[in-house]
Amino acid sequence: MGDENSAADYLSKCIYSIGVGSNDYLNNYFMPLYYTTSRQYNTEQYADILIQQYTEQLKTLYDYGARKFVLNGVGQIGCSPNALAQNSPDGRTCVERINVANRIFNDKLRALVDDLNTNTPDARFTFINAYAIFQDIVNNPSAFGFRVTNAGCCGVGRNNGQITCLPLQNPCPNRDEYLFWDAYHPGEAANTIVARRSYSAESSSDAYPYDISRLAQL
């Protein structure tokens, strides 16, 4: 960039999109056979620990010159094919105890955005409510072009969610009609919806306090 000041100016204009937290629940808190965190902490305490560590990571990015932050909330992990395969009696009803934990984390993340915007005046933070956007899709999938919301396009076992997509396995031919690509991850069609509503929010519940298009102008 020529010199340190030019680099700092450039970095301050970039938008940093960050998604942290999903694996802390998927691959830790809700795996009690392998990790003790769910026995050590209730959902409120665990979310506080994650937010504390998240804050430190954001401060590190800030110290390196980042000034525009997009913080993506955790989606509905309790509605993923893996959660449905393991914990849903009918394979369709979302696992509420998991979703409750996700909502607690998201509420604290949104509050963190308020705190950082207040106390870091030369930086801007916004919260993307992926949970609410997915709720819209799950409640009315046909309106978004989805036919299957409870199974992966590629996977093994119940809901295609007990084992994720394996090498040489053929995925479904109509992947745009599936909300999930595999046991855990939304497919491209779903991610496109989240991206569009994050950039140009349909309501304040999608992005807070402003969408990404507005953040880019600040």
Rank of each mutant, 00 (worst) to 15 (best):
Q86F: 15
R97G: 00
A123V: 03
A83P: 02
Q135N: 15
R110W: 07
A83E: 10
C79E: 07
A47Q: 04
D115Q: 15
Q57E: 12
N87A: 15
I104G: 02
V100M: 02
S38Y: 10
D122S: 15
N129F: 06
D24M: 09
M1I: 08
I104F: 03
G155K: 10
Q169H: 05
R196G: 12
C172D: 09
E56Q: 14
V138R: 04
Y184S: 00
P141R: 08
A83M: 15
G155R: 02
E177W: 00
G91W: 02
P171D: 06
G65M: 05
Y62A: 14
N170F: 02
E44S: 12
V100A: 10
L11Q: 09
C165E: 00
I77Y: 11
I18M: 14
L112A: 09
V148R: 11
A83Q: 15
G152T: 07
V20I: 15
T93S: 14
L61A: 15
G75W: 04
I137N: 00
D206Q: 03
T149H: 03
Q217N: 13
N191Q: 09
S22A: 13
A195H: 05
S204L: 11
D206A: 08
Q76L: 10
S80L: 10
G152I: 01
L33C: 06
A151W: 01
D48Q: 14
I128C: 06
L116N: 07
I163R: 09
Y35W: 12
S205A: 14
I15H: 06
A83H: 03
G155F: 11
N174Y: 13
Y16M: 09
S142H: 09
T126M: 09
G187I: 05
